[in-house]
Design a protein around this nucleic acid. Structure first.
Length: 297
DNA sequence: CATTCGTGGTC
DNA sequence: TGACCAAGAAT
């Protein structure tokens, strides 16, 4: 066993891994034979959408498109339609584009290299590391909001992580990584799961936590958050709400929708026009002749 | 680095 | 009850 650059983190490895072995949720994309495509689809859906709402859409999606080539053969609009109400529908478009890139550039198989994953549409630092680690068992720092929160508390001693991911977060996660590959991969998913189930944002369940004895924040008496105010996400009246309404109509339509129908979605003309325009610009809506619209073909 | 981008559940 | 939160990415 070689020395870790972060002895404090090394003390967390065994209890966190033991806790995960006993408490991990059974999720379809974690089943032994799930495969990299399953992991990839789940990661796209889980970007800012809770597990409970992802599950049904995920099952439908994987049954319909069990391989990247199956999705790549479809019109992008079908991906947007199947995305249903998961939110942020550009993710559906990006997943579809990623499937086509996988077919064209990787022989239809999800690539296993981090740099190749990162080059796919909709795959950023987190998702590339997650796929490489969860699907291929590689050693990567998988830094999502759960992991940042666990480390902020256990190692830094603050109630909440920084508002946006920082280079310091990444460095800390790299330094905390176990040395050997399979252990690092289990550690990545285990720390995420601990953040999702125990070390939660609002009211952490410290009585169920396996590392309170090592947690800097807990040992300091769980001091409250004292940083800058965290910007609340307003939604009512935003362009996002208007876009959501327009797209909901188009998702449910099997034939092109006349503009007059879309006009009933929102009272303010200017904002409605802007929302429709950005949907078209984003590739989420196709304009047709005679003022009709539909999901992209 | 700050903004934009959906949707719905929770306390 | 409304503010906060949820496995981020792109710009």
């Amino acid at each position: 066993m070689s020395d870790s650059p972060l002895p404090l983190a090394t003390a967390l490895h065994a209890p966190v891994l033991r806790w995960y072995a006993a408490n991990a949720r059974t999720l379809p994309w974690r089943e032994p034979g799930a495969g990299a495509w399953a992991v990839m689809v789940s990661e796209f859906m889980l970007q800012q959408t809770p597990v409970a709402r992802v599950l049904p859409a995920y099952e439908t999606w994987m049954k319909r498109w069990p391989k990247p080539a199956d999705l790549a053969a479809e019109a992008p609009g079908e991906a947007v339609r199947a995305w249903d109400r998961l939110g942020y529908p550009r993710r559906a478009l990006r997943l579809h584009a990623a499937a086509r890139a996988i077919v064209e550039q990787h022989g239809g198989e999800v690539p296993d290299r981090h740099d190749a994953l990162l080059a796919l549409p909709g795959v950023g630092t987190y998702t590339a590391a997650a796929i490489a680690s969860f699907a291929f068992g590689q050693r990567h720092a998988v830094v999502d909001t759960n992991v940042r929160r666990v480390f902020a508390r256990a190692l830094t001693g603050t109630a909440q992580p920084s508002i946006s991911p920082t280079a310091a977060d990444q460095r800390l996660a790299v330094a905390a990584l176990p040395d050997d590959e399979p252990t690092a991969a289990r550690w990545a998913v285990a720390t995420m799961e601990l953040g999702a189930l125990v070390c939660t944002a609002r009211v952490p369940r410290c009585s169920d936590c396996p590392i309170t004895g090592h947690c800097a924040w807990y040992l300091a008496g769980s001091p409250p958050y004292d940083g800058p105010p965290r910007r609340g996400q307003t939604y009512e009246g935003t362009d996002r709400q208007v876009r959501g309404r327009l797209l909901a109509v188009l998702r449910d339509a099997t034939t092109p929708v006349p503009k007059a129908t879309l006009d009933t979605c929102w009272p303010h003309h200017q904002q409605r026009e802007r929302a429709l325009h950005t949907l078209i610009t984003d590739g989420l809506v196709d304009p047709l002749p005679h003022n009709h619209y539909r999901l992209p073909s």
